[in-house]
Design a protein around this nucleic acid. Structure first.
Length: 605
RNA sequence: GGAACCGUGGUGUAGUUGGUUAACACACCGGCCUGUCAAGCCGGAGAUCGCGGGUUCAAGUCCCGUCGGUUCCGCCA
């Protein structure tokens, strides 16, 4: 006969007046007037007021209602009525009506929760995570989960309409070098060997193209064993896509259509197409970032040529030694900032990797403070006019290697944009960053690394540079940037064996190493690989932006803390009994000792 | 791996230059109350001040260590 629920609490409206309904949910609040009792009943759709009137319900039901407490799970049989005149509650979507209860079933009682579900203050996040199932009851969490679900659904509909197939790829796979640290899973059957959890389905999706699937996508769970951030979790979801017989234009056009569709359906925003495109070089020069936030100005300017012959040797010598001098005109900040705030910028600049920050304040007569004294009036006037500065502006400079200038000023720019409140939070500012370098030189490793990944195809016109001058090779790669956040990135892939081998060689892999690690993949090239390309989106981050959340944890049902723990389940935890032996794994003495210490401290507690 | 900030009844916070019995709001328990909706009124219970050590006549407060949370740098596409 079923549970008999007829409606969600939150969906009842004046249209339902007169209907007999059955609703289920949690007691959100109760207001007991000694006589009449009001219960705000909550389910995922919202709240509805239930009235227990002693003159209208049987005595045993009324006394049952008197015992209700917050978070009790109940089922109410009743009739929807208009509220009495003047008693409507405009703050509730169901505020025009209420349910007169005829019958009440208490399905479960509840202890007083460790934090209020309707709390108006922020609750300690550790507590929220420990009792995540209670945290999830909060309407705000529900709306985020629903937003995420609807976005996923919209994307599936869209991609289906464009001929994409959703295909799953393995979670237990082979470790591939490059990129992040892998999570490893020891093999019981093959002593001493390990699976790796995928950092992304990159190779598999390319193999699907080789398999003639033509168009693939997946909401793919990915794993990376690196330290966490507000927008980084050890496991996360990518919208992963790949298409065969396409070039860059085909991919960008399709993604633009998809983004416009998603934004229209989810946030009711019209995205203007085609999206702007900015070269990587341009982004780095003007914004000091490969994911420029173009919602505000404060662009970086290169003043190397202006200052190369000045008497200020920090500037002139830097330029003469192949470095650069770049700056930002922080408009108005010369008047607004206290000396301490300028010094704070300098400290930031140092943590971002420059030797220091040089500055001056523009005045009617020239400049004051900082490095003003090193310039002649004429030099100062040239600099000020080049940077289009007005009296009261603060000019900040970094003199260093060009990349350092870009990096440091790019970060200061973001800091200043926020500090000066220059960012319009209502904008959806989306653009492509294209023409990436294929390689980045890693100081730490002393070799070239793939800027995207090692399967990215070079631009055809740069192909000849691959072995001669790798640093100059540009890639057929593209990143989609929204409000200064990288939403996703992709590329046209290499589809010919000899180029893939050249790529591996440029990355410092010997043919033997390439064969050992990617032999199966290289072999696949020999059997007729179609040209193909694709893209992958950091889906959690994307939802975070759509939901206007500060942290990726708020858009995941069960996230981990900054130290990668799950406070609810207690993961990770020590392996028990024979697990390790079955897996042919032995702990180091340090690990053993740590486990003992942890066990001891828990006993004390 | 490094740095910063935070940790006080169930929750959110206050707690002065170290000084008596750690304060407030909400929640909780009891009582009153028939139209509230963050109900109201009266009363009550509830804190090893994260943990360990030190300085001091005296530590929530100062110092050191440690644990946990968050953010950032390194790392990570």
């Amino acid at each position: 006969m079923g549970f008999q629920r007829t409606h969600y609490c939150g969906e009842l409206r004046a249209d339902h007046v007169g209907q007999k309904v059955v609703v289920c949910g949690w007691v959100h609040r109760r207001r007991d007037h000694g006589g009449v009792i009001f219960i705000d009943l909550r389910d995922r759709a919202g709240l509805v007021q239930v009235v227990f009137d002693p003159e209208k319900v049987p005595a045993e039901i009324f006394s049952e209602a008197e015992r209700l407490r917050n978070e009790y799970v109940i089922q109410v049989y009743g009739t929807v009525r208009h509220r009495l005149p003047g008693m409507a509650n405009p703050n509730l979507q169901t505020g025009a009506i209420e349910i007169y209860a005829d019958e009440l079933k208490v399905l479960n009682s509840a202890k007083t929760p460790p934090f209020a579900i309707d709390s108006r203050d922020d609750v300690d996040e550790a507590l929220r995570l420990k009792y995540r199932y209670l945290d999830l009851r909060r309407p705000e969490m529900h709306s985020t989960l629903e937003l995420r679900h609807r976005t996923t659904k919209i994307i599936r509909d869209f991609l289906d309409s464009r001929g994409f197939w959703e295909i799953e790829t393995p979670m237990l796979t082979r470790s591939t070098p490059e990129g992040a640290r892998d999570f490893l899973v020891p093999s019981r059957v093959h002593p001493g060997e390990f699976y790796a959890l995928p950092q992304s389905p990159q190779l598999f999706k390319q193999l699907l193209m080789m398999g003639g699937v033509d168009r693939y996508f997946q909401m793919a769970r990915c794993f990376r064993d690196e330290d966490l951030r507000a927008d980084r979790q050890p496991e996360f979801t990518q919208l992963d896509m790949e298409m065969a017989f396409v070039d860059r234009e085909d991919v960008l056009n399709l993604i633009e259509d998809m983004m416009a569709f998603v934004f229209r359906e989810i946030v009711g925003e019209e995205i203007k197409l085609p999206l702007r495109r900015m070269s990587y070089a341009d982004a780095m020069a003007r914004y000091g970032s490969d994911k420029p936030d173009t919602r505000f100005g404060l662009e970086i300017q290169d003043v190397s040529m202006i200052v190369k012959d000045t008497g200020f040797r920090v500037f002139s010598e830097t330029v003469q030694n192949g470095g650069a001098v770049r700056g930002i005109n922080v408009e108005g900040a010369g008047e607004k900032f206290a000396r301490r705030e300028i010094d704070e910028l300098g400290e930031l600049a140092v943590t971002y990797g420059s030797k220091g920050l040089l500055w001056l304040i523009v005045t009617d007569t020239g400049g004051r403070g900082g490095i003003t004294k090193f310039f002649s009036d004429e030099e100062l006037a040239r600099l000020v006019s080049y940077m289009e500065a007005q009296p009261g502006d603060l000019l900040i400079f970094v003199a260093d290697k060009p990349e350092t200038c870009a990096e440091v000023l790019g970060r200061l720019r973001l800091f200043l944009g926020e500090k000066l409140n220059l960012i319009d939070e209502d904008l959806w500012d989306m653009l492509w960053v294209v023409d990436w370098p294929l390689f980045e030189y890693s100081e730490m490793e002393g070799r070239f690394m793939a800027a995207h990944h090692p399967f990215t195809a070079p631009l055809a016109e740069d192909l000849h540079l691959l072995s001669k001058d790798p640093q100059k090779v540009r890639a057929q790669a593209y990143d989609l940037v929204l409000n200064g956040t990288e939403l996703g990135g992709g590329s046209i892939r290499i589809h010919r064996r000899e180029i893939q081998e050249e790529m591996f060689a440029a990355l410092g892999l010997t043919p033997a190493e390439a064969k050992e690690r990617f032999g199966f993949f290289l072999d696949a090239f020999d059997y007729g690989t179609p040209p193909h390309g694709g893209i992958a989106f950091g889906f959690d981050r994307w939802i975070m932006l759509l939901a206007k959340k500060e942290s990726i944890r708020d858009v995941m049902a069960f996230p981990k803390t900054a130290s990668a723990q799950d406070l609810m389940t207690g993961a990770p935890s020590a392996a028990i009994g024979e697990q390790l032996r079955d897996l042919h794994v032995r702990l180091t003495p340090e690990a053993e000792k740590r486990l003992q210490d942890v066990a001891l401290s828990q006993e004390v507690r």
